[in-house]
Design a binder for these strands. Structure first.
Length: 323
DNA sequence: CATTCGTCCTGATAGC
DNA sequence: TGCTATCAGGACGAAT
């Protein structure tokens, strides 16, 4: 389940292996992965073939690769209306860099053939970028980038504003982004009438957090998932945001969280943060924090928002029903 | 208007 | 053995 750390691991891999390379050919094996590309697979192909990947940018869980003219030194395409290849991994999406000879994966959806290239040691780089997706919640599409008034990061337009695909313009900054504003987040949380986990999962409020890291951050901050947003104290919100930062930073350092082969980096390797999870998936096992003080409580699993929520009954007590 | 819910998907696994 | 039910969940449009 790719969340911020997993998507960022993929972004870094792509930046290393794909930046500067030209897309020579595009093969769409399953058009369902192009659902968000309204004009269809052939249009998708013609928008990519011949263009060069100039960068790899992330906003929340969205990734995009701005495209430049075939020549690396040429002016930007479309004179100020640049185009990008967007990707979202959804539940089970993978972006893999592979040799063309590697056997097709069972759920291979899109194959991008890249121009030949060599690394610093003169060794040739793998020639394909593949999009694989078992559950098809993810996808790819080509879109234009537009200047969006929202801090920094990402490519810059002539206006000095960051260039963001329209489809990601509503996505908030993530808590690891230098442009993330805690004051803005706290102000928006306080006026909501909802539960704190709902707020954490709302990508328009704070991005990059999914079910796993939401539960981990709530556990670390000792907050119950249903805690009313309009009663949240400033200190609690700060504790929570810092917990998000801490858990996602550690997960990033570990290469992400993998439960199986569904999440892998661009080279197919799994991360190993799963062993560090304190709440997610630990139903019936002891809360390690309580155990440290000699108390015993077992992680519970509740159904909430049509998904699982894991928490400690002792250090994350259920809040009183709102007045 | 803000908030919540249903839907899209496939495969692993449990239970009978 | 082979069937069905359940679970996993990000994002978005629909419903409340």
């Amino acid at each position: 389940m790719p969340e911020l750390p997993e998507v960022e691991v993929v972004r870094r891999g792509l930046a290393r292996w794909v930046t500067g390379r030209r897309i020579d050919d595009v093969e769409v094996l399953d058009p369902r992965s192009l659902r968000r590309h309204a004009l269809g697979p052939e249009d998708f192909r013609s928008n990519l073939a011949g263009y060069r990947v100039t960068d790899v940018v992330r906003r929340g869980k969205f990734l995009w690769m701005p495209l430049g003219e075939p020549s690396p030194d040429a002016e930007p395409v479309n004179g100020g209306s640049p185009v990008a290849l967007m990707a979202h991994l959804g539940m089970s999406g993978q972006l893999l860099i592979e040799d063309p000879g590697a056997p097709d994966e069972k759920h291979l959806k899109v194959r991008l053939s890249l121009c030949t290239a060599t690394d610093d040691d003169g060794k040739s780089l793998p020639g394909e970028l593949r999009f694989i997706d078992q559950r098809i919640f993810g996808g790819m599409f080509v879109t234009s980038l537009q200047p969006t008034a929202d801090g920094k990061a990402g490519g810059r337009g002539s206006s000095g504003l960051p260039l963001i695909p329209r489809e990601a313009a509503h996505i908030a900054r993530d808590p690891l982004d230098p442009a993330f504003s805690f004051e803005n987040f706290f102000a928006r949380v306080r006026v909501r009438r909802s539960g704190i986990k709902r707020a954490l999962l709302d990508q328009g409020l704070i991005s990059g957090i999914g079910n796993i890291y939401a539960d981990e951050a709530l556990w670390a901050a000792k907050l119950h998932y249903a805690r009313a947003t309009d009663t949240l104290r400033r200190s609690e919100a700060l504790r929570l945001v810092n917990a998000c930062r801490d858990v996602m930073t550690r997960a990033l350092d570990a290469g992400g969280t993998s439960f199986d082969s569904l999440y892998v980096n661009v080279n197919g390797a799994s991360g190993y943060f799963e062993r560090s999870l304190e709440a997610y998936g630990r139903t019936g096992r002891p809360c390690r924090r309580c155990a440290l003080t000699g108390r015993k409580s077992l992680i519970r699993r509740d159904t909430f928002m049509n998904r699982s929520s894991f928490s400690c009954p002792r250090c994350q007590p259920k809040p009183r029903p709102r007045a």
